[in-house]
Computed example of a mutant assay.
Amino acid sequence: MVPSGYTRVGEVGGHIRTVLLFAFFAFQAGVADPRIGSWTLVSAQSSMDPANKLSIMTVPDGSHVVMSGETRLDFTANTHGKQAPAPGNLGFNQIELHRISKKEVEVREKKDGAPVATVREKLSNDGMVLTSTTTSTGHTPVITVWTRSGGTKDPKDPFVGDWTQDMGKTRMQQGSVLKIDADGSGGVRFSGGYTYTAKFDGKSYDVKNSRNDTVALALVDPHTVDATFKRDNQVSQKDKWQVSADGSQMTLTSTATLETGQHITEKLVFKKQ
């Protein structure tokens, strides 16, 4: 995205120098998007303030689950797999809980009877680590790792207790692939967990299969791309893509504001296929 103003960094002979001079020259010279190609995710880290907290309690014939942080969830699920109402939750209003084994459960989220997402939760052998994998149509599976932080460790129900999300663990499933192609008219076609086609002209372009509505791109230098996303006409996410000098590795640093108002920073590293 080309900013509407310039940042003054000094004056020489009465001429204003700007931090955008090199970026402008690079764009005029026809420098291509350094991201073009296919990439595979090799590592991911994220941080959030405050960190997510998860509490699971037993109730008659079910479990009461409360999660705060990135997404606020509060529902009671029947342990016999029967569908239960879950009002007030973002994205779903019905829930099903299925016991796969003593240390593994499957939660099915629905919206007015239609499947929305499936969450598979698995406990470590010592019952101190809970790994949750969320899958939904059109989105990259998300892996969240929780560590037991307190509460009663009930031998009859090892999921019961208080859990804290481990932000140092991978949130996104490793091995996911990005594909970025030139669109033939100075822009790019991006395909990953979401898709868009956009030019480097600072204008907003539609994003599909995303919680964001639009994206605007800026070619900062021959190795760096900035992407600004908006939701409901408000900036909701800023991404910086940096490609290594040899073109074999790409690092994405993303900062986003969630619907809850909380902020998340995520760093993903990709290698070229």
Results as ranks from 00 to 15, higher is better:
P3Q: 10
T7C: 07
R8Q: 09
E11G: 07
G14T: 08
H15E: 13
H15V: 15
T18P: 00
F25K: 12
A26I: 05
Q28G: 04
A29T: 12
G30P: 03
A32L: 09
R35F: 05
I36H: 00
W39T: 09
L41F: 10
A44V: 12
N52H: 07
K53D: 09
S55E: 13
M57T: 07
P60S: 06
D61I: 14
S63A: 10
H64L: 11
S68P: 00
G69C: 11
E70A: 15
D74W: 02
D74H: 06
G81N: 14
G88L: 07
L90P: 00
L90F: 11
G91R: 14
F92S: 06
E96H: 05
E96D: 05
H98P: 01
I100K: 07
V105E: 03
E106I: 03
K111I: 01
G113I: 04
T118I: 08
T118W: 01
S124A: 13
D126F: 05
S132G: 02
T133S: 03
T137E: 08
H139A: 15
W146F: 15
R148T: 13
S149H: 02
P155L: 12
P158R: 04
P158M: 06
V160E: 11
G161V: 15
D162K: 15
T164S: 15
Q165V: 15
G168E: 07
M172P: 00
M172Q: 08
S176K: 05
V177P: 00
D183C: 05
D183G: 05
G186V: 11
G186L: 04
V188S: 00
V188D: 00
R189S: 14
S191G: 05
G192D: 02
Y194S: 14
F200T: 08
N209I: 02
N212K: 02
D213H: 05
L217Y: 07
D221A: 09
V225P: 00
A227Q: 10
T228V: 15
F229C: 07
D232N: 13
D232H: 09
D232M: 08
A245T: 10
D246H: 06
T251G: 04
T253G: 07
S254W: 02
S254K: 10
S254Q: 15
T255K: 14
G261S: 01
H263F: 07
I264E: 09
T265Y: 05
E266W: 06
K267D: 07
L268P: 02
F270V: 04
